[in-house]
Simulated assay, not measured.
Amino acid sequence: MRNAVSAVLTALACLLLPCGALAVWASHGLADTGRYVGTMAPLAGDPDVRDAVADAVGDGVVRELGAEGSPALGSFLREAVRSFTHTEAYRTAWEAGNRAVHDAVLHAVRDDRAAPGPVTVDLAPVAAEVKARLVADRVPFARNIPVEHREVAVVPARDVPGLRKGYQVLDTAALWLPLSAVALAVAGVAVAKCRRRALTATGLGTALGGALLGVAVVVGRHLTLADLPERIHRPAAGAVYDALTAGLRTASWLLVALGAGTALLSWLAGHRHRLPGRRRAQASDGTAPAPPAPPPRARV
């Protein structure tokens, strides 16, 4: 009965560990604005991301100016936008835009009293930072760039309640899942009749859970990119996915290393303690080793 209870507790602990790592990553990794902006900042120099931004912004500028019927003007505008993505002003706009979007989404999912509706972002602060960068770089006519307040929807209104509920669940799970996993693991080892075997099983289960978490990250990347429409640049989306899940991959490797190391140390400790028992068993079977030679007699 003790072994059965220990097996159940150990299995539950090994299942909760990767789930807890996922909840902690989502709640404290993605929900921290500074960490999120720092993760996304290097992507401003990624060629795939630059091409995706240039195509999206270039198409938007062409539509705004009504230049769809003029291929020459459309090509000129797209090339101008593409060259802009290689400047410091673009990096400033990239970081300011990511910060503004993250702040808006985080405020919407954390504040239950927020007015129902889509999550919107005001582009005026982003435009002001870009304008200041261009003025500092002495770009002609940069001072004449208008800074207008324009609200852009980043999350539809129908998706806000689901995001808010999911964030609340993850925020609670990030605290209780790791604590529950550790408590169950300790209880499983304490209840077991052979604690060394229970510790070895816990280590192996932890390593298996970490490996499954790494597999889930890879499968999630494939499914995420497969669901994207063809017009969206999948290499750029893959670069963003890899940047955001870097901490999750690190957590999976840490679980694998911690579990495998614990299981190995426990097995080595048990193997070492079994060696004297084998010698005693050989002695009881009549195959004891030869007695030591008597000390030599002293000559007078």
Score class of each variant (00 low, 15 high):
residue 2 R to L: 03
residue 4 A to T: 10
residue 4 A to C: 07
residue 5 V to E: 12
residue 7 A to S: 15
residue 9 L to G: 01
residue 10 T to W: 04
residue 12 L to E: 05
residue 13 A to M: 02
residue 16 L to N: 01
residue 17 L to I: 09
residue 19 C to Q: 08
residue 19 C to Y: 08
residue 21 A to C: 09
residue 24 V to T: 11
residue 25 W to M: 03
residue 28 H to F: 13
residue 33 T to I: 03
residue 34 G to P: 01
residue 37 V to M: 02
residue 38 G to Q: 05
residue 38 G to R: 12
residue 38 G to C: 10
residue 39 T to L: 03
residue 41 A to R: 14
residue 41 A to W: 10
residue 42 P to Q: 13
residue 45 G to H: 15
residue 46 D to S: 09
residue 47 P to W: 05
residue 48 D to I: 03
residue 50 R to F: 05
residue 53 V to T: 10
residue 53 V to E: 04
residue 56 A to Q: 02
residue 57 V to K: 02
residue 57 V to D: 02
residue 58 G to C: 00
residue 61 V to D: 07
residue 61 V to A: 10
residue 64 E to A: 14
residue 65 L to P: 07
residue 66 G to N: 10
residue 68 E to R: 11
residue 69 G to D: 03
residue 71 P to N: 05
residue 71 P to S: 03
residue 72 A to L: 10
residue 74 G to C: 08
residue 78 R to A: 11
residue 83 S to G: 13
residue 87 T to V: 07
residue 87 T to D: 06
residue 88 E to S: 12
residue 89 A to P: 14
residue 90 Y to E: 06
residue 94 W to C: 14
residue 96 A to Y: 04
residue 98 N to A: 01
residue 99 R to L: 02
residue 99 R to Q: 11
residue 100 A to R: 05
residue 102 H to E: 02
residue 110 R to F: 06
residue 110 R to W: 01
residue 111 D to G: 04
residue 113 R to G: 12
residue 114 A to V: 09
residue 115 A to L: 02
residue 120 T to I: 03
residue 121 V to W: 06
residue 121 V to Q: 12
residue 121 V to C: 06
residue 121 V to Y: 08
residue 123 L to C: 04
residue 123 L to N: 08
residue 126 V to Q: 09
residue 128 A to R: 15
residue 129 E to S: 14
residue 129 E to D: 15
residue 130 V to N: 07
residue 132 A to Q: 11
residue 135 V to Q: 15
residue 144 N to F: 14
residue 144 N to S: 13
residue 147 V to R: 07
residue 150 R to N: 02
residue 151 E to P: 14
residue 153 A to E: 14
residue 153 A to N: 10
residue 155 V to K: 03
residue 157 A to T: 11
residue 164 R to P: 11
residue 164 R to M: 07
residue 164 R to E: 15
residue 167 Y to D: 08
residue 167 Y to N: 05
residue 168 Q to D: 11
residue 168 Q to A: 15
residue 169 V to N: 00
residue 169 V to F: 04
residue 175 L to W: 12
residue 176 W to T: 02
residue 177 L to M: 08
residue 183 A to E: 06
residue 184 L to F: 07
residue 185 A to C: 11
residue 185 A to L: 09
residue 187 A to M: 13
residue 187 A to R: 06
residue 189 V to G: 05
residue 190 A to C: 10
residue 190 A to Y: 05
residue 191 V to K: 01
residue 193 K to R: 13
residue 193 K to N: 08
residue 203 G to E: 06
residue 205 G to T: 02
residue 208 L to H: 12
residue 213 L to T: 04
residue 213 L to G: 00
residue 214 G to R: 01
residue 214 G to C: 04
residue 217 V to F: 09
residue 218 V to A: 11
residue 220 G to E: 03
residue 221 R to E: 15
residue 225 L to D: 03
residue 229 P to G: 07
residue 230 E to H: 12
residue 231 R to C: 10
residue 232 I to H: 12
residue 237 A to T: 11
residue 238 G to L: 11
residue 238 G to W: 06
residue 240 V to L: 15
residue 243 A to G: 02
residue 247 G to L: 02
residue 250 T to A: 13
residue 251 A to P: 04
residue 253 W to C: 02
residue 257 A to T: 10
residue 258 L to F: 12
residue 260 A to L: 14
residue 261 G to V: 06
residue 261 G to C: 00
residue 261 G to P: 04
residue 265 L to W: 08
residue 272 R to P: 10
residue 283 A to Y: 11
residue 287 T to F: 12
residue 287 T to G: 09
residue 292 P to Y: 08
residue 292 P to N: 10
residue 296 P to T: 08
residue 297 R to M: 06
residue 297 R to L: 14
residue 298 A to H: 15
residue 300 V to Q: 13
